[in-house]
Design a protein around this nucleic acid. Structure first.
Lengths: 197, 197
DNA sequence: GCTTGAACTGAACGCTCGTTCATATACGCT
DNA sequence: AGCGTATATGAACGAGCGTTCAGTTCAAGC
């Protein structure tokens, strides 16, 4: 047996990425073997190497696509107007890209630790771009008095961690619809940045 | 060579737990080998099995101690008074136990996925106790009108994820002292639960 | 000082890992 | 219809995995 009927790289390629994405998300990079990914695709392990030079590169590519998508999504977002409006747009853009993707599969940023130093550095730069955008909003809000934040860098870290925290608990098909969760987070973050009542 | 000079289980035992804790936290359960842990302790891999029946049990024990400590710490906390005071006490208790431990090493709850189903179930029950305590506070606040939350179960999830998010980014010795971070989180969570301004 | 048991070594076990490669088959093109 | 190549198999590689164990050494009690 060798090549299978109906096999095509346009089909198998995405299947490989999907399977890797799903498994990395569920079990973590170190907890997933190439043979597991291959089994999920319905192929032998060796065949994966037609689609990726190695396991590390597979993770890196997926994370890179994710980060690029997030940054691009932010680029398409209208971040004008007063800070309260800007922050809402940011939160909604973050939600839309991170949660609205293909059936809510998103490799957590924790997996960045499994990258080689060189690969890590590359993604870290993209992440910085993303977070810088948020920091600008918060800083502007602090200047105008729209927000009450003692330390805008600290507040940025907190808001980012709040947003990423959704990935840790939200599962599609749960009791609360995603749109409601999004609204809830918009409200929470706006209040968190606002002046105390 | 066999037994080493000055060797004693009272010394090696804690060393094993410390090393495992540190490495599991940094690289994740699947990313750490027994030989790595042994090397960190300064011992051969076989010697670890004097202190744990297997790798899985090592993780389980550590996570169990953590959860038990968290629940006990909460038990020692005075959770009386109005909801705004209660929630502050809860946040501070959470911080004190999760961040104030031995040089800030704390295995993230993400590692729960590496437990066997039986072990997972046991810890999940303890976590439920912990979160139930928070939910009671939020629910009480919603009843009295001290908090403005549309869905107290959802708010509980969000607050828990916010609190656990600290572990993802905070590193001891950073720019902002831990006490300031704690105050910041107290303020953020109180505002997040409060009525909109 | 001798004996006994606790603490550890170092080698080995069977497996699984990531990766390579000779080989085989199905597809696309002429 | 037949050729070339894209797509796969399946066996194999060395390395590392978790775990076991016979053997060795140190420490402590009599």
């Amino acid at each position: 047996m060798a090549r299978k009927t109906g096999s095509h790289s346009d089909i198998t390629g995405p299947k490989v990425r999907d399977a890797a994405m799903r498994l990395f998300t569920k079990h973590g990079y170190a907890g997933v073997s190439m043979r597991q990914i291959a089994a999920e695709v319905g192929v032998q392990a060796g065949a994966l190497y037609l689609y990726t030079p190695n396991k590390q590169s597979l993770l890196f590519t997926l994370l890179l696509e994710q980060m690029r998508g997030a940054v691009e999504g932010l680029g398409r977002t209208d971040l004008s107007g007063p800070p309260e409006i800007q922050i809402e747009a940011f939160v909604r853009a973050h939600f839309q890209y991170h949660m609205g993707g293909v059936q809510g599969i998103f490799i957590p940023y924790t997996e960045l630790r499994n990258l080689t130093p060189a690969n890590y550095k590359r993604l870290e730069e993209m992440r910085r771009i993303y977070e810088r955008e948020l920091e600008k909003i918060i800083h502007a809000g602090a200047e105008t008095g729209a927000f009450e934040v003692a330390d805008s860098k600290l507040s940025t870290l907190v808001v980012i961690s709040i947003l990423n925290g959704v990935l840790a608990w939200y599962r599609p098909g749960g009791r609360v619809p995603l749109a409601d969760v999004e609204d809830h987070y918009v409200a929470v973050i706006k209040k968190a940045l606002s002046a105390a009542c």
